[in-house]
Nucleic acid binder design. Sequence first.
DNA 1: AGCGCTATTGGGAGCGCTCCCAGTGGGAGC
DNA 2: GCTCCCACTGGGAGCGCTCCCAATAGCGCT
Lengths: 337, 337
Amino acid sequence: MAEDAPRRQPTLDEVTELAGVSRSVASRAINNAPHVSRAKREAVERAVRQLGYVPNPTARALATRQTGAAALVVSGEDPSIFADPFFAQVIVGASAALEEADLHLMLCLAASDRSRKRVEGLVRSKGADGVMLMALREDDPLARMAEEAEIPVVFGGRPVGTVPRWYVDVDNVGGAREATEYLVSRGRTRVAAICGRLDTEAGRARYRGYRDAMLAAGLGPFPPQEGDFTEPSGAAAMAALLVNHPDVDGVFAANDNMGAGALRALREAGRLVPADVAVVGFDDLAVAQIADPPLTTVHQPLTAFGREMARMLVALISGQDPSPLILPTHLVTRASA
Amino acid sequence: MAEDAPRRQPTLDEVTELAGVSRSVASRAINNAPHVSRAKREAVERAVRQLGYVPNPTARALATRQTGAAALVVSGEDPSIFADPFFAQVIVGASAALEEADLHLMLCLAASDRSRKRVEGLVRSKGADGVMLMALREDDPLARMAEEAEIPVVFGGRPVGTVPRWYVDVDNVGGAREATEYLVSRGRTRVAAICGRLDTEAGRARYRGYRDAMLAAGLGPFPPQEGDFTEPSGAAAMAALLVNHPDVDGVFAANDNMGAGALRALREAGRLVPADVAVVGFDDLAVAQIADPPLTTVHQPLTAFGREMARMLVALISGQDPSPLILPTHLVTRASA
DNA sequence: AGCGCTATTGGGAGCGCTCCCAGTGGGAGC
DNA sequence: GCTCCCACTGGGAGCGCTCCCAATAGCGCT
C-alpha cells in the first residue's frame, strides 16, 4: 500500500480533459470501439498512460448491467466436501475458460444456511453474470433457487430427479459399466459395488452402470454398499463387504477415495490385491496413483469438465443457447485390477 | 431462468414510491440505519417484500466505493499447483471468515502472464476491497504489484527475500526442526532432507529447520535434495538419495506429497519403512493417512491459515492495523517413523 | 456548386444507490 | 408561552462509465 499518494484514482473525465476530447470519444477509444479517429485515439492513449488511468469496473458494471464475474457454487452439508481434490481440478478448468471471456471467478462454498442465503442473495441481486452449480444433493435448497434465477445457471453434474436445461456431466453410467465389465473380463464373478451417496446423481448413476454391466454379464449384482465418497467410508464399506460376502473377488468403488479405503481394508484383512480381490475406482485423482497397489480407475476429464461448464455459461451469458454436454470417461488400468 | 417476467428488477425508487417515503428513508430502512421512524420502517419493509426488491450491489458499490469482495490469488508457473489439496483447505477457512464479514471470495489462479495481468488490473482498478496473496516465488512479478497496490494486501506465507507488512505464515522452521529432532530421537543419525522448491520461502525455511536440528544434534546435515513439492519429485529425490547415500536411515520430506513419493521409491528399492529408513513429511494432508505406511508428519492448521488470512484482511479493510501472525505446527506420529 | 452519405464528435441522460444537508415538527426545559 | 434540541425527512448531488442521438465534417459525384 503506497500511502504516499492518497489522491483519488483518475477518472474518465480527467482523461477526457487531458486528451482534449469528449467523454464519448475517450470511452470509445478505451474500449477500442469504432468511430474514433486515429489522432484522438492516440491522444486518449497518451492521456491514459500519463494519468495511469484504469477504468472503474464498478461504474462500468452499473452502466452496462454486467458484473464481469461468474460464480461457482459448491453445495454440501459441510465445507469439508470441498477438500476433495476433485473440485480443485474443475476449478482450474473453469478458471481458464472464464479468463478467456474476461470474467472473474467468485467461489461460493454453500455449506451452511448462512452461506446458502448469501448465494441466493448473489443470484437474486444479479451480483454475478451467471452461476455454475455443483454437487447438489437430493432436495437441495439451491435447486429451487436455480429455477427462479434470472441469470444463467449451468449445472455441473445433474441434480437428482430433474434434468436441468443446461448442464455438463461425465458419463457416469458408461464409466461404471466399463469398470465393471473390465473386472468381469478378468474373470471376476463376485463383484461388489461400494457406491457413493445415493442422494447424489453421480452415486446413483455409477451404481446403475455397475448393475447394468453385472446383469448383462449374467452375474448377480450386489446390493449397494453405500459410502459417502470418503476414504474411511470406503474402508468401512469394504470391511462390511468382507463380513457379509467373504468370497467377494472384485470391487467397483464409486470413487478413488473409497477405492483407496477399500485397499486399506483389504490390506488390514490380509487379502491380496489384485490376487484375491481386484479393485477399480473412479475419478483418476492423484490418490489412485499413490495408492498401493496403484488403483485401476475410471478417468474423468475434470479440467475439461470445469472448462466446458464455464464455456457453456459464457455462451449463455452472451445470449446463445448451448446444448448440454456429457463428457466421456475411460478406464485407466493399473495394478489393482 | 424464469423468462416469464422479463421486467426489470425493482429499484429503490419503486420501493420509495410504494412505501410513500423518500429515497433517503427507504435507503436507511433497508440498511437498517438509525433515524427512521418505526412506522416508515415497516412501510418500507412491506414494500420491499411486496416488490421482491433486492438492492443492486453494483450501484451500492459505486456509491460506497466498496466492492464487497476480496480476492485470493494463487501464484504459480502453471495452474497445476492449485491441484494441491493444500489450497482447498486454506480456501475453506478463508471463505468462512470472509463470510462473517459479508465479503465474497474471488479466486484468481495467476499462472500465466495473461492471468497475472488480470490480477494486476483487478488490484489497480480496485475491483476488490483487498487481496490475499499465496505461493509467491522468488522474483514473483506479483510481489511488485503488491507493493504498489492501493488496497490492502495480506500475504499467505512470506515471500522470499522480503518480509511484508502483513502476513500469515506457519512456523516452517520450527516444524521442520521438530520433525528432524524426532527422527534423531528415534536413533536415526543419517537423516536426509528432501526439500521443496528453494525459490519459495517455505522450501527454504523447512530446510533451515532441518539443518538447525541436525547441527544442534551434532550430526551432519545432508545438502538439500530438491524436489518441487510433487509426489514424483519426492520419489525421484529419494531414488537419488539412495544412490548417493545408500546408508541413509531417515528422511525429512518438506511436504507430504514428496513424503509419499519417498515412500514409493523406498518400497520400489526394497527398503522397509520405518525399519530401514524412517520418513517424516510436512502438511498432514489426507495423503499422509492414506500412504502406506501412514506418514508421520508435521501438522499445519490450514483452515486456520485461511481463516486468519481473511480476518487480517478484513481488519485492514476496516481500517485497523493487525499484526503478522505465525501459526504453530505440531508433529503427528504415525507408522512411517 | 449542391447533394447525399458516411465517419466522427460531443452532449447529456441515465445505471441504482448513498449520504450530506437543510429543513420540520414536537416535546422538554425554563 | 417560548426557546432549544433532536429525532426524522426528503431533496439532490454525486459515484464513474456507457451509449443513444443529434450535430458536424468531410468527400466523392453529378
